[in-house]
Amino acid sequence: MKKAQHTPHIPFAARLLERRDLSEDTTLFRIAPEEGALAELSSFVPGQFVQLSVPGAGEIPISPADLPAPDGTLELCVRRVGHVTELLHKQQTGARLGIRGPFGSGFPLREMAGRPVLLLAGGLGIAPLRSLLMHLLRQRSSYGEVTLMYGAKQPRLMLFREELTALAATGGLRLYLTVDFAPETSEGEYSCAIGLLPDLLKGFRFDAVNTYAAVCGPPPLYRCLVTDLERAGVAAERILLSLERRMRCGIGRCCHCALGQKLCCVDGPVFRASELKGIPEAL
């Protein structure tokens, strides 16, 4: 077959190599993009997203859960919520998928160098932040203290828990886990606090003036966390939010993802809280 010349809307092929269920509705997929996609993907910066195609169902934006591995494979952590993710979750290893990207802006890594970083993840928000976390830990000496606060609704919905606790055990990461709701049987076992992320943040002493905060979670989370972080002394320029919008094209054309006059797919999905001031519909 003739190799498709690279046009922006044509996905590269990718093969599903491995899948690991993380919770009842969330699975970690490892995919191997075809040769042609690798050069582009190698420029991936944590916080950027890819457009993942599930043939027959459509295309969805996903923020990779880690940087591409040296062999070019990519980890995507996806929750089953609708018609595309439903079909994705039914795919077995070996299945053919499609990929475009990476798109959008990632976290300003250069600027964050040498500074403490506080990651705040709510629910599935851990997925995009995990690539940032992995990067920070791999380049551990280039950054200040790394802290992850991660809240889930229930212990069994907490993704990557073992992996995260193992990382914390190496000493490179300060880890705080919290659940909104814990069924009786699980108490103690998980060593996580009960409550909401903002509660966790309230009791946290840190170098607010120098810290960069990276936030990702369900829409209501941003509003309260931004206020709390600012109150704690983190400047709005250093509060980085990874936002979600409905995306159709990923390249600034379809207009579904606008917040104010900015397009989430081009100007984001990572925004500084300061950029979003005056855009009430942003958060």
């Binding site: 027959g56 169902a57 459509g58 018609h83 595309v84 439903e86 079909l87 039914k90």
Partner: peptide, 10 residues
């Protein structure tokens, strides 16, 4: 056809 493919149509 979407059901046969394992999902629902958009």
């Amino acid at each position: 056809v979407a059901l046969a493919a394992g999902t629902l149509p958009p």
